[in-house]
Design a binder for these strands. Structure first.
Lengths: 339, 339
DNA sequence: TTTTTGAACGTAATCGATTTCGATACTTGT
DNA sequence: ACAAGTATCGAAATCGATTACGTTCAAAAA
């Protein structure tokens, strides 16, 4: 392994000079610097990130905290895409990605300790239980953090537009004549709260009164739960004409139930999903769904974190709202008069 | 930040003693060691992985090389699961995960250089173009590597049982009376080669002669390509009775095409997928598919890599075959006489 | 000519932890 | 009681890179 010392010997200069030449300091003669850089290239020199990190106290490493209670972990397409996008943006700025978790090896540590142990310059927190004390400890530590889909005081966050998305969906189906709109939501998280609030707000803005039975609880990413919720909705004496699902994957469970009961989509029942994962756009009929811009979320989160790390003075906490896009699909039937 | 020096001052011992006490060396008095450990705990001491890595030349960091030409990157459920599993097993052994890529920041480097730069103790290589010179350079370097689904000479590899899986599928449909079996395969990779060879071998063992037109080329994870291939198969004067798809996601494209042409599954056409992703088991009818044990693959790959890193003497390259499991599903109809 | 100035480079400390090689004091054997 | 052995701990080098500060020497200013 070629070190700075090897280069210094080859060029008959001190290690300090080599370091300064390689980092473009101004107090090195241009010719000398060129010579050193040439030698470094010839010798195949690579800076040692570890040594650099030790000396500078900056690792150029970003931690990513992705925990999923359902243990599907990275399995969710939405989070996989965010992660991929975080990775790309981070690399563009010269940062690498390290996963943060507890209990690495025999060491028993929490998230904060792990991040500290690895000298992470910052951490992106997503898909976790934000009420977990370990998460709160990390966020309120000296390590810069950016959260996804959750806001902590005095911290930056990247948010998908759950309010706007839900409103778009409701208005879309309303415009197609639907008045009896059911909503199956996920487990009680801040995301669910926002969507639920937006659902009710938009409905009342449109003058709709939604009976309690039209709002069903299920679980995110769980076709079984949504299938059961669908069954309950179908059992109502006054069936809804449209069902909104908590996510595209949950929709599959509803789809199966509808099919089993001989309810055709969208002939007998209109449906819509949420997320806009790849699957929803290859199924036929194409699912009407609100596509979250996972790519933008990951990119913005990484970008914001790098800003905090590199420009802590000028930085003020902000919430970055990432708008999604309604994918109209073919699962919502137009039931207006004359259609 | 509490360092070893802080502890040494508090305990009136040298830094060497603290280090040895914390690492359980035998030349430290039991009481002294206990006292030091107690102080370390009270002061909230955390070892500095960076300093340790610099001194020891071991980072306890494993690189992961996941590149996907289709740029869906981590989007594939199969690879996401492998990654998650790699991560868990690595952490169990005290290793963290870092992504390896080229061109980190403004530094222009290849995979090997990146891994070296980050002092990775080893790298897991998956889902890449194994003919890429940069990949070959990495694998043939001084950095231990384990590849997934591809074998390099004198290197360990973890392989899903493509031969056995394909054979299982063919025999399964054969047992249900199918003789006209079509196979849509993915782009020409080593995986495709193995499946193709196994397909032909198994067919001939069963005494089947498969016409050329029954073997169609498509692309992995691409419903459009498989949809077109399906259309070509349906256009044949002598249609197959069963179609094997390159993967579950590709099956969706076929499903759409079949539905469009009014061909029911499995009434008019039997089908099977490959991978056994979550989706395949929530769709109705449940897809007959060969489930790759992604969890085991990731685990074994990480475990093998740690072995290479920690026991280089005793280690000899080996290929670890991970068997999958046939998920029988409901998409293959029994067309034998009397059924 | 003397002083000042600045370009160019080196010295040495530093980051935090590990480890080799002693050094010291104490115990044991003879 | 003296040599030898043992338990315990410390001094200092080391990993690779960075940087504050000092030094040198020559050119410019006084």
């Amino acid at each position: 392994m070629v070190t700075i010392t090897d280069i210094s010997r080859r060029c008959n200069v001190s290690r300090a000079t080599v370091s300064k030449a390689l980092n473009g300091h101004s107090d090195i003669n241009a010719e000398t610097a060129a010579h050193i850089r040439q030698a470094a290239k010839e010798m195949g020199y690579l800076p040692n990130a570890t040594a650099r990190a030790l000396k500078l106290g900056r690792s150029h490493n970003i931690g990513v905290l992705f925990v999923d209670k359902t243990s599907s972990g990275l399995g969710h397409e939405y989070f996989s895409q965010i992660l991929e996008s975080v990775k790309q943006e981070a690399e563009r700025s010269g940062y690498d990605i390290t996963f943060i978790s507890r209990d690495i090896g025999t060491l028993h540590m929490d998230y904060y300790e792990h991040a500290k142990y690895r000298n992470c310059d910052g951490v992106i927190v997503a898909s976790v239980d934000f009420t977990d004390p370990a998460v709160i400890k990390l966020v309120n530590s000296d390590i810069p953090t950016v959260t996804l889909d959750y806001v902590f005081d005095s911290h930056s966050a990247v948010l998908s537009d759950n309010v706007g998305g839900m409103a778009d969906l409701v208005r879309f189906v309303y415009d197609r004549g639907h008045r009896k709109i059911a909503f199956i939501h996920g487990e009680p998280t801040s995301v669910t709260q926002k969507r639920l609030a937006s659902f009710h707000k938009t409905c009342s803005e449109l003058g709709l009164t939604i009976p309690e039975e039209y709002v069903e609880a299920a679980t995110f990413h769980d076709p079984k739960a949504s299938g059961l919720a669908t069954r309950r909705l179908l059992a109502l004496k006054d069936r809804p004409t449209c069902i909104l699902y908590p996510d595209d994957f949950s929709f599959i469970g509803g789809m199966n139930e509808l099919e089993k009961q001989g309810v055709s989509i969208p002939g007998d029942m209109s449906v819509a999903g949420y997320d806009g994962i790849l699957l929803s756009q290859v199924l036929r009929p194409r699912l009407t769904t609100y596509r979250q811009d996972a790519e933008a979320m990951g990119r913005e989160a990484a970008h914001e974190l790098v800003e905090i790390i590199e420009r802590p003075k000028e930085w003020i906490p902000r919430q970055i709202m990432i708008p999604g896009r309604l994918l109209t699909g073919d699962t919502v039937r137009d039931i207006r008069e004359g259609f």
